[in-house]
Amino acid sequence: STGEEYIAVGDFTAQQVGDLTFKKGEILLVIEKKPDGWWIAKDAKGNEGLVPRTYLEPYS
């Protein structure tokens, strides 16, 4: 699937089932941008889950 690459600007630990845990500096592939501010993203290992958009910045 296609998506946009974003870099994590902080650590995030999953708070509920379906969230994706990530560390600062990780590159995430954003698959869907939901209007509530929680985006669906995939990490380098292929894990998929919800992430808070405030922790992400476009990666170029």
Rank of each mutant, 00 (worst) to 15 (best):
Y59W: 10
D43F: 01
T2K: 13
I27T: 12
A8G: 05
F12T: 06
G18K: 14
T54W: 03
K33M: 10
D36H: 06
L29C: 04
G46C: 05
I31C: 11
L29V: 11
Q16H: 11
L29S: 13
Y6D: 00
K45F: 08
A8C: 04
I7L: 07
T13I: 07
Q16E: 14
T54C: 10
A41T: 05
L28K: 01
K24W: 03
A8D: 00
G3S: 14
K24G: 04
K42L: 06
L50D: 04
F12C: 15
R53V: 06
I7T: 09
Q15I: 07
L56Y: 00
S1Y: 13
P58Q: 10
I31K: 12
G49E: 00
I7N: 05
V30E: 01
W38P: 15
S60T: 07
T13G: 03
K34I: 04
I31F: 12
Y59I: 10
E26T: 10
I31L: 10
V9Q: 08
E57M: 02
L20F: 12
D43Q: 05
T2E: 10
Q16M: 05
E48S: 05
D19Y: 14
E26W: 12
P35D: 08
P58E: 12
K24P: 03
P35V: 11
K42N: 09
Y55H: 11
K42A: 05
F12S: 14
D43C: 09
T2R: 07
A41G: 08
L50H: 10
V9P: 01
I7Y: 06
I40Q: 12
T21Y: 02
E57I: 02
K34G: 06
D36F: 06
T13K: 04
G49C: 02
Y59V: 13
A41Y: 00
I27W: 09
E26S: 10
I31G: 10
Q15D: 08
Y6S: 02
E57W: 00
G10T: 09
A8H: 00
D36Q: 02
I31D: 09
F12M: 09
E4A: 05
I7G: 02
S1V: 06
I40P: 11
T2C: 11
D19F: 15
P35W: 04
D11I: 01
D19R: 15
K45S: 13
W38K: 15
L28V: 08
W39L: 14
F12A: 14
K23L: 08
A14I: 03
D43L: 02
G18S: 10
T13R: 03
L56D: 00
